[in-house]
């Protein structure tokens, strides 16, 4: 008998005849007070800041300039950006000395380059979760998995309209269960560890710095 058949038959032989009712997760989270967008922006900002991210609330017109300024101030020389309209706008706002390219090729062709020469990655989060200060990335053809992971500085743009209050609301509202991307990543701050004597240190294996730009109507122009 194969391991599969043997494992399943052992379990089937003693599984209870009837399962309890399906737990009501939606019911548990229902009836929480609704939040306004301004509250969600504020909570997202506060939580991300507490997780050691650097957060800027900016206007829709001004975000690209603000990002460009930050990259310049950080001394970034080489940036890789997510392909798409926001990345194009950012590229136009950057000083010519700053080399900004799209991911472009399969990772296998330039792994060492990404690991060793790229200073920063720019991505647009699909949505965000205010309660925990979390940015959601749906990885796929236009969002490489390593872009938010390998470069030491990660810059993220998030539209204030796309902020959910909780993880449950995001999973439910975005219907993740029906349309899972190959890799869905939620990130809530720069990479960190407390593995040495419970002492918190940043930049363990992922980005040491996370800069988040929340674009909204009330945001400051650069």
């Amino acid at each position: 008998m194969s391991a599969r058949a043997s494992m399943l038959s052992k379990l089937r032989a003693c599984a209870p005849a009837t399962a309890p009712d399906m737990p009501d997760v939606a019911g548990y989270y229902a009836g929480r007070p609704a939040s306004t967008q301004a509250e969600r922006v504020e909570r997202l900002r506060a939580e991300l800041t507490a997780s050691h991210a650097d957060v800027h609330v900016v206007s829709h017109a001004g975000w690209a300039g603000a990002v460009a300024q930050l990259l310049h101030a950080q001394g970034v020389r080489r940036l890789v950006r997510q392909s798409g309209a926001p990345g194009d706008s950012l590229a136009r706002a950057l000083p010519p000395a700053l080399q900004a390219s799209e991911f472009g090729r399969p990772l296998d062709e330039w792994k060492a380059e990404l690991f060793e020469q790229v200073d920063a990655g720019f991505t647009v989060a699909d949505c965000a979760i205010a309660a925990t200060g979390t940015l959601v990335h749906l990885c796929g053809p236009h969002m490489p998995r390593t872009l938010s992971l390998v470069p030491p500085l990660h810059v993220v743009l998030i539209d204030a309209e796309r902020i959910y209050a909780t993880l449950f609301e995001a999973a439910d509202g975005e219907r993740w269960a029906a349309r899972m991307p190959s890799n869905l990543v939620m990130l809530s701050g720069p990479s960190k560890t407390a593995d040495i004597q419970q002492t918190l240190a940043y930049g363990a294996h992922g980005p040491a710095r996370l800069c988040v730009f929340i674009a909204c109507e009330q945001g400051e122009a650069a």
Partner: peptide, 21 residues
């Protein structure tokens, strides 16, 4: 922690058109 830095939800290997994974 209210949340950890990364939740990594893997549902598939690299699909055609994807550049890494």
């Amino acid at each position: 922690q209210a949340v950890t830095t990364y939740f990594n939800l893997i549902s598939s290997p690299r699909r055609s058109g994807e550049l890494d994974g």
